[in-house]
Amino acid sequence: MKVTLSIQRSDPERGGEARLENYDVEVKRTDRVLDALMYLTRNVDGTLGYRRSCAHGVCGSDAMRINGAERLACKTLFKDVVDRSGGTVTLEPLRHLPVQKDLMVDQSPFFEKFRSVKPYFVPKAEPTGKEFVQSQEERALFDEATKCINCAACYSACPILDKNPKFIGPAAIVQAARFVNDSRDKGLDERIDILDQPDGVWPCESHFECTRVCPRDIKITKLINLTKRQIKKARAADGRETAEGK
């Protein structure tokens, strides 16, 4: 079947307004949107800019807005998006990050926030030459957060970042939660002063947009709310106030 890909083109380096450019492509209903993009760059227009790698939804390179919603181009089949839009599929870059060219955005602010939450293991105990023992129940507590691929779909969809660009954003909180809930890690003690900031967890208003767009089906809003409760509990135990509302 024939579809029209309406792709936002821009090259800030050379100036000029962003514009939508249309490409007619012959596709199968079960083709990925990425397949059509690859076809275009290899055969029609080599100047199209986008990132891609694994092509099956595990590397996080090709998050973009497809018909207005954040998705991975390699995990979106045409049959999922064409019927409702009458044969036109609009592709735009993620929001909240500066556009570099066409569908490529500068992810450095996103990764800076990722790095800020100590997204690495800080063990409670010294290694013994074997594994740290962890029960299946303890392992299950942080399983969901380990699925994150840092594709930044949630960061683009989050309405809070419209009004507060300093908010660390959903993905960074998921990364923190992955360690906060790991029984082997020093957890919240190590990260509470980072998360309990005015631009830490508190700006989230539970709009659930992050959860809705996450290509890894992580219940992000739930994790954020869990983290808020854990912080309140820890602060209360110390007889201190949180930074909520500050």
């Binding site: 030459g129 962890q134 890690d185």
Partner: peptide
């Protein structure tokens, strides 16, 4: 190498006794 990865935080699935 596997113990080293686990000791660096790798979240392996677990057996009932809590080992990898």
């Amino acid at each position: 190498a596997v113990y080293d990865l686990e000791n660096r935080g790798l979240p392996f699935s677990r057996l009932e006794n809590g080992t990898i």
